[in-house]
Simulated scan of single mutants.
Amino acid sequence: MGETVSPAVGDRDLRVSDAEREHVGMLLQRAVGLGMLSLGEFTERMDTALAAKTRGELNAVLIDLPGIRLAGQPNSTPRPQYAPPPSAPGSAGNVIRARMSGVTRKGPWQVPPTLYLNNYLSGVTLDFTQAVMSTQVVEVRLDDFCSSLTLILPAEATADLNGVELIGSSANNKVRTGPPMGPLHLVVHGRTRFGSVTAKHPFAAQWRRMMSGF
């Protein structure tokens, strides 16, 4: 009896993971920031990427975007092949990556020296009022799209939002910028597109400060 040989699976038929879909989403966000895609085109392609099951389907949303170097691209043809995403910086504990979701960290959560945020159509709230700090200065590296980031700081904390690149976005700092004198100083930089960044004290602290002015 002859041996049955399964047909070879080409690169375009390989299954893709959630991490690969998210990486393509980051490339599409970059294309919007460079003016290569409109917001409507981005939304349409992002929907296709999130639904993609194979590498060929994922390639389709990138094929006409110039300037993106993709692994596995043969020299004889300009058709791009998807590049697997690089390893995320740091450990899972210092990366917040939300997709069409709401994320809240509050209570005695452990705050690493650096936080990496990459969110799409999401709302993220980081409440530092009861957080356990490992360093006085915390760096927040931001790369968000159509998302809101709310930072709730203790009464004596400070925040610097001057390093945030705003593209169709807003930044509202309701706390002192510095210098770092209290238990926490946040340094936020990176980029947010069509979103918002807000740093503020808890409502009770704002109310007490307002009442003390009377």
Rank of each mutant, 00 (worst) to 15 (best):
N118L: 05
P180T: 04
R105L: 13
R79H: 09
S134V: 13
I152T: 04
R97H: 13
P183Q: 12
V95L: 09
G182Y: 05
A131Y: 03
K174E: 15
Q81S: 11
H185Y: 11
G93T: 05
L142H: 00
S87R: 14
L149Q: 01
V197M: 06
I63C: 10
D160F: 07
K174A: 15
F194A: 12
V164F: 04
F128Q: 02
A155N: 06
Q136R: 15
P74D: 14
P183A: 13
N173T: 07
T135N: 12
T177N: 13
P108S: 13
L161S: 02
T150Y: 03
V61C: 08
G195M: 01
C146A: 15
L149K: 01
T77I: 05
L153G: 00
G178F: 04
T77C: 12
L186V: 10
D64A: 14
D160H: 06
P154E: 02
G190V: 03
P86F: 02
K200I: 06
N172Y: 10
D64S: 14
Q130M: 12
D144L: 03
E165A: 11
E139A: 06
S122P: 05
L186S: 00
I68T: 09
N173W: 05
I68P: 02
R79E: 15
E165R: 14
L149N: 01
G102C: 07
A88N: 04
V187K: 08
P112T: 09
E156D: 15
T135R: 12
A157Y: 02
T135F: 01
P86W: 06
S147V: 04
Y116S: 05
P85M: 04
V95Y: 00
A71V: 13
P66G: 13
D144V: 02
A155D: 11
E156W: 04
G93F: 13
P179A: 12
H189T: 09
D144Y: 00
D64K: 13
L149G: 03
L142V: 13
A71M: 10
I63R: 15
T114C: 06
V95G: 00
C146K: 03
D160E: 07
V95K: 03
R99F: 07
L151P: 00
P179Q: 14
G123M: 06
L70A: 09
A159E: 03
D127F: 10
T158F: 00
N172W: 07
P179K: 10
S148L: 03
Q81A: 11
L166F: 07
F194E: 05
R141S: 08
I68R: 08
S76C: 05
G72A: 11
A131G: 06
L65F: 08
G72N: 11
A157D: 06
E139I: 02
A171D: 05
